[in-house]
């Protein structure tokens, strides 16, 4: 469904990704793990079209999307819950959610069904629907960020460090929901520093180190891999 071929991305003179090749097949959940600064967020930004690639290509359903603007990519079904959640602080929970529907919503079309689905998944958001984004707790903001991405009716969901800054209990709660979303059949690419959580939901995983993919394979195999265990699982 998604294929990145030999992607090279630089910020000014600093090369962040040096030839990354990665694929995500329809229906699977893929984890991209790696330390801070490995280039994980850069890769997601490039897939969403926030960063241009210097060379290499991004294929989505077999067609190149490298030249498309971000809003075109969202309309094709690529939605992202970005790093740091990036909730609109001055918009209510409901405004945050309904804004994400602009890519598919026709004039006067109802979004009630989509809202209900998100509220079923994250009941806390329903209680807080009239509150401003900034007033939510970190965990609630993360749920809003994921819910907002789901409102875009994605076919490929990109999650950037959903556990970032959350207490362990909350991070687990967020990942329980990611598991549910994944089981509903949605294709997910999740970027994560918390390797334990990410490998628990993923079918396959890639390990990114300083802009290169150094390991890849089924999540169950990577969990047993000596290098991953030492560097990322701490045992």
């Amino acid at each position: 469904m998604l294929a990145c071929n030999n992607l090279v991305v630089a910020h000014d003179d600093i090369v962040a990704l040096q030839g990354v090749t990665l694929s995500v097949h329809a229906g699977e959940t893929v984890a991209l793990i790696g330390a801070n600064g490995a280039g994980k967020t850069t890769l997601l930004h490039t897939i969403s079209g926030l960063n241009p690639a210097m060379s290499g290509d991004i294929l989505y359903d077999g067609a190149s999307i490298s030249k498309l603007s971000t809003d075109r990519r969202v309309a094709l079904g690529i939605a992202q819950a970005p790093e740091g959640r990036r909730i609109f602080p001055g918009l209510t929970v409901e405004e945050n959610l309904s804004l994400a529907t602009v890519n598919w919503r026709r004039w006067r079309e109802s979004i009630a069904g989509d809202l209900d689905r998100v509220f079923d998944l994250f009941p806390r958001l329903k209680e807080r629907r009239r509150q401003l984004g900034w007033s939510l707790s970190g965990g609630e903001q993360q749920m809003l960020a994921i819910g907002r991405a789901l409102m875009a009716r994605p076919r490929l969901l990109l999650l950037d460090e959903p556990s970032l800054g959350l207490a362990p209990r909350l991070a687990e709660e967020v990942y329980e929901r990611v598991k549910l979303i994944s089981e509903s059949g949605l294709t997910i690419l999740v970027v994560e520093q918390n390797t334990v959580l990410a490998l628990a939901v993923a079918d396959r995983a890639y390990v990114l180190e300083t802009g290169r993919i150094v390991l890849e394979g089924p999540a169950s195999e990577l969990k047993q891999n000596a290098r991953v265990r030492e560097a990322y699982l701490g045992r």
Binding site: G49, L50, T70, D71, V74, Q80, F88, G90
Partner: peptide
């Protein structure tokens, strides 16, 4: 308003 608050997130919302 969303663009005013976070232009990059606004792009990601389509």
């Amino acid at each position: 308003r969303a663009v005013a608050q976070d232009i990059q997130a606004a792009r990601l919302m389509g």
